[in-house]
Nucleic acid binder design. Structure first.
Length: 215
DNA sequence: CGTTCGATGCACT
DNA sequence: GTGCATCGAACGT
């Protein structure tokens, strides 16, 4: 699947009240998330993920996501029904579902679909825009390129400082949120990667021309 | 309570 | 391409 390519005209202007959140643009509303997951997944490409933390603000353009949809999706955490861990998937859309994978990587999802339908979009890679130095620090790297700072879901959360404390975080709030800076990217779909079941579904969406997606 | 294992990343070869 | 670090949820005693 292909979409048009267009670049954003400019960055959002500073808000009248000068508040940091406002200057980064308003969070996407809950209605954005409460829709079919594949629509949300594709429209998340090019949107800007923002984390406002005590140590600083990081932001980057989302360039790679995967959809996990419902109890019939064997790769979705809800495949075996409701549990304590996957409860956020059943909750209202527009919340973060964060969990620990392989004992060391935090992975962050945006919960989608109307409440009660367990589904989410996994954020897999972003192109760093703001707070690159902070990302380098969190990744414990000193120099080199920026395009691999947030490549891969585990690297992304590490660079952004996202951890289990962000589970159930409201993505329409001002701490961890996604906003629209007007970027439009050419996208395409591929099979999901890194999973052992239901890997054939083409539910991985990428920005076609991004140097920051995983291989 | 013990065992299994996963939507990974990185250092190796 | 292979091995491994590392931990909490889920599930079976």
């Amino acid at each position: 699947m292909r979409t048009q390519t267009r670049r954003a005209p400019d960055l959002p202007s500073m808000a009248a009240d000068g508040s940091p959140t406002s200057s980064l643009g308003p969070p996407l509303p809950r209605e954005f998330y409460g829709r079919p997951t594949l629509e949300v997944a594709r429209e998340l490409i090019g949107k800007v993920l923002v984390h406002v933390s005590p140590s600083g603000t990081t932001a980057g353009a989302i360039v790679e996501v995967e959809a996990y949809i419902g109890e019939t999706d064997a790769a979705c955490h809800a495949a075996s029904g409701f549990t304590g861990r996957n409860a956020p998937l059943y909750g209202p859309p527009g919340q973060a579902y964060v969990y620990l994978n392989y004992g060391m990587h935090y992975l962050v999802n945006a919960v989608t679909e109307p409440e009660g339908m367990p589904a989410a979009v996994l954020l897999r890679a972003v192109e760093p825009i703001q707070g690159c130095h902070l990302m380098q620090q969190r990744r414990k790297r000193t120099s080199s390129g920026e395009q691999d700072l947030c490549r891969g879901p585990g690297n992304l959360t590490r660079a952004f400082g996202v951890s289990l404390s962000h589970n159930r975080c409201d993505l329409t709030g001002n701490r961890l949120f996604i906003t629209d800076w007007g970027f439009t990217r050419s996208t395409h779909w591929t099979p999901r990667i890194g999973i052992r079941v239901a890997a054939r579904r083409r539910w991985r969406c990428l920005a076609s021309d991004s140097p920051a997606v995983s291989r």
